[in-house]
Simulated assay, not measured.
Amino acid sequence: MSPTDDRAPVYIPTQDPADHQLAHRLAETAGVLLLALRSEPGHTNPSAEGDRRSNEFLLARLAADRPGDAVLSEESADDRSRLDARRVWIIDPLDGSCEFGEAGRTDWAVHVALWIEGSLAAGAVALPAAGQTFSTWQTAPPCPDPEQLTLLASRSRPPALVGDLAERLSARIQPMGSAGAKAMAVLSGTGSAYVHAGGQYEWDSAAPVAVALAHGLRVRRLDGSAPRYNQPDPSLPDLAICRPSAAEELWDALDALASHAGR
Rank of each mutant, 00 (worst) to 15 (best):
R168L: 15
T139M: 07
A113D: 02
V125M: 02
E167S: 12
D164L: 13
T150G: 05
S154I: 05
L165G: 00
Q132D: 06
E167Y: 08
E147H: 14
T106C: 12
A153N: 06
A113W: 01
E147N: 13
D145P: 11
T150C: 14
S170N: 15
R155F: 10
V162D: 00
V112I: 14
S156V: 14
L152Q: 09
A124T: 03
S154K: 02
P142G: 10
A109R: 08
G123H: 05
S135Y: 04
D107Y: 05
A166T: 10
S135Q: 04
Q138F: 08
P159G: 02
D164F: 08
E117Q: 14
A126S: 15
S170R: 15
W108E: 09
C143R: 15
L149I: 13
E147K: 15
A160H: 11
A109Q: 09
A122P: 02
R105W: 08
P144M: 12
A153L: 06
Q148E: 14
V125N: 01
R168C: 11
E147L: 15
S154Q: 01
S156I: 15
L114W: 00
L120P: 01
V110E: 04
D107N: 10
H111D: 11
V110D: 00
L165Q: 02
A153H: 03
T136G: 10
A113Y: 02
T150H: 06
A166V: 11
S170F: 12
T150I: 08
S156C: 10
R105Y: 11
A166G: 06
L151V: 05
A153Y: 01
G131K: 06
A160Y: 06
P159F: 02
S135L: 01
E147G: 14
Q148C: 13
L120A: 08
L169F: 13
P146L: 04
S135I: 01
L149R: 02
D164M: 11
Q138S: 12
E167K: 14
L152T: 10
L151Q: 04
R157Y: 11
A126L: 08
A130P: 06
A124N: 06
S170M: 12
V125A: 07
G123W: 00
F134Q: 04
G123T: 05
L127K: 01
L169A: 09
A126F: 02
G163M: 05
L151I: 12
P144N: 13
H111I: 05
E167P: 00
P128V: 04
H111T: 09
T139G: 07
T106F: 05
T150P: 00
A113L: 01
T106W: 07
W137T: 03
L161C: 01
A122V: 10
A166I: 11
A124Y: 00
V110S: 08
L127Q: 08
A121E: 06
G123S: 09
A129C: 12
G163H: 12
L161K: 03
A124W: 00
A126V: 07
L114Q: 03
W115D: 05
G123Y: 08
R105S: 11
A109N: 07
P146Y: 05
R105M: 11
P159W: 04
R105L: 14
S119W: 03
P141F: 07
E167A: 15
G118V: 03
P141N: 11
Q132T: 06
S119T: 10
S135H: 08
L165R: 04
W115Y: 06
E117L: 10
E117K: 03
W108D: 07
S156M: 14
D107A: 10
A130T: 11
L165V: 12
P159A: 11
A121G: 07
V125I: 15
D107K: 07
R105N: 13
